[in-house]
């Protein structure tokens, strides 16, 4: 494998890392904004519900962290952070790129949809504050698939970057 192909493989895997936290972060920002609009409107009438609103607004923010975890894992496992100069084949790089992209899309969509579910839950809490416990469940179900996507991403990254797959390049 020529050094050019190794560079392309490395570039692809870092592009995947960039996409995974970029898309997840953007999704979380959108999701929080959707929930925040509804929460702020409720607090206009019922400021005493701030604590319950805060939980619902914060829920879509977790996907941003999931994207961050996946990106950091790609960077540490491929040697960009704290590792040596690893040999990443074009195939491995391409696989890591699409894993990062897939995780990013899953986090992006789930955080926006979680924001909408949180806004609906906020509407329920506004009408019936005693239903806060149940209202939090619905956006939590959306979270499930963000967690599943993160777990799959972590497994893929770990198995694709085992020492038998990646070799240390000579200095």
């Amino acid at each position: 494998m020529t050094p050019e192909w190794i560079e392309i493989g490395r570039g692809l895997c870092y592009a995947g890392a960039g996409l995974t936290f970029g898309l997840a972060g953007a999704g979380s920002a959108c999701g929080i904004a959707i929930a925040s609009h509804a929460g702020a409107g409720v607090m206009r009438e019922k400021p005493e519900l701030f604590g319950r609103m805060l939980i619902m607004i914060a829920l879509p923010g977790t996907q941003g962290f999931y994207g961050f975890i996946a990106a950091i894992l790609i960077m540490t496992q491929t040697g960009l952070i704290g590792g040596g100069n690893l040999k990443i084949s074009l195939g491995t790089g391409l696989a890591l790129f699409f894993i990062g992209l897939g995780n990013g899309i899953a986090q992006l969509v789930s955080s926006i949809k979680q924001g909408e579910a949180s806004a609906a839950g906020i509407a329920l809490i506004a009408r019936r504050p005693e239903s806060a416990g149940r209202a939090i469940l619905f956006p939590a179900f959306v979270e499930t698939y963000a967690v599943v996507a993160l777990l799959a991403t972590i497994l893929f990254i770990i198995f694709l970057t085992q020492p038998s797959v990646l070799q240390l390049l000579p200095q």
Binding site: A40, G41, M43, R44, A126, R127
Partner: peptide, 13 residues
Amino acid sequence: WGFVCGRMSALEG
């Protein structure tokens, strides 16, 4: 419309 609809939710109660 999220803000005003959040307010609607509180007022509907």
